[in-house]
Design a binder for these strands. Structure first.
Lengths: 193, 193
DNA sequence: AAAAAAACTTAAGATAGATTAAGAATGAAG
DNA sequence: CTTCATTCTTAATCTATCTTAAGTTTTTTT
């Protein structure tokens, strides 16, 4: 079994007792995922929270011109899901796709709600998780509205060293909101300094 | 006293009992705020969560060229604070400023933590609040990386009708990440269609 | 190992958006 | 009610970024 990563992640926020751990593990299911496999596609309702044991995933939308726009990358010991679709039971506008083969744990909505109700610690755990994700998104919005593309690229490389050797520049360009060609120009520019 | 708005807001998520309501109200303090008054400035640690009874506020950063960039507007029955600074006890990089005179309620960090610990409902309430704010921020990031300035402006007007008569186009331009001059051009363009 | 697909780069020309500057209109404050 | 400050607009010029297209390199799949 590969539950240590998840338990450790939860425990880093607050101590869990036996009952809490066992309840969680009773609900969580392990899945092997192939490269290019989808965890979610547009139009589906997001019915699970996904915790990544191993692998690298992207969450993105496709615009009316067929272009992909990356909202998020996630790797080992991180959660990924379309929270909006999950909570409102509405069809997602997003895709979640594996960039590498990997292994995940998933928990169904009803089971998560059960945990929320019976063990307040889970409410708190996910509140803190979302708070942290929220803080990071705020920084990203500020960057988007105030920084140039070159500044956004440099900050991305500084803040995501673990991703650099795992994803292509095409993916990074899509994440910071520019074309791959322009990113190429930016990288050339940086080299010549 | 002006606590109805807050109680109502909380109750719309889940029923509160007497004890919970009283505990909350014991901690919450009312303040009158003048136009142009600051609730937070750069370098300060954000020590309160603020609930707006009446008024309109903006939260923004100032970049190294002295330019303002609006992260958020908030009005009646909404919360505003720098969650990052609040939770990590780190100096904020943001300003919160009143665009109109108004009235607010504030709760101190220690008191909020007390509520979290003693009444799980508050954990849940703030988890759901942050989740909703997070979902909206995700939409904004996707807009920033995939839509043109004109599309962002049009969506802003559609999604924030209540703000339109209260804030200037200068503020809107700063929020969607363009100059006021270019927004002027966009508005002219829209008229000529 | 070969074939196919995806990623990366370069460059020319096009467009979105910034900058500067100035004048007119609106709103705030004494 | 009047003065001062801010907002809004316009236009010319400049710059960042996109588009298209092509060629090269790297990675994935067979």
């Amino acid at each position: 079994m590969q539950f240590q990563g998840l338990i450790q992640h939860l425990s880093s926020f607050q101590k869990l007792n036996e009952t809490e751990i066992n309840s969680l593990l009773a609900f969580v299911k392990e899945r092997k995922i192939k490269r290019r496999q989808f965890l979610l596609t547009e139009g589906e309702i997001c019915k699970q929270y996904t915790f990544i044991i191993e692998g690298c995933f992207k969450m993105y939308k496709i615009d009316n011109k067929g272009q992909e726009h990356n909202l998020q990358f996630s790797i080992e010991n991180e959660w990924i899901s379309d929270i909006g679709s999950f909570h409102d039971n509405t069809p997602s506008g997003l895709y979640i796709e594996a960039l590498e083969k990997g292994t995940i744990l998933q928990i169904e909505k009803n089971d998560l709600l059960y945990l929320y109700t019976h063990f307040p610690k889970f409410d708190r755990y996910f509140r803190v998780l979302v708070e942290n994700a929220f803080i990071n998104l705020q920084k990203r919005v500020l960057q988007n509205i105030s920084d140039t593309a070159e500044e956004r690229y440099l900050k991305f490389t500084e803040e995501n060293p673990a991703l650099l050797n795992r994803i292509s520049n095409v993916q990074i360009a899509s994440y910071i909101g520019i074309t791959p060609e322009f990113l190429s120009k930016i990288r050339k520019n940086i080299l010549h300094k």
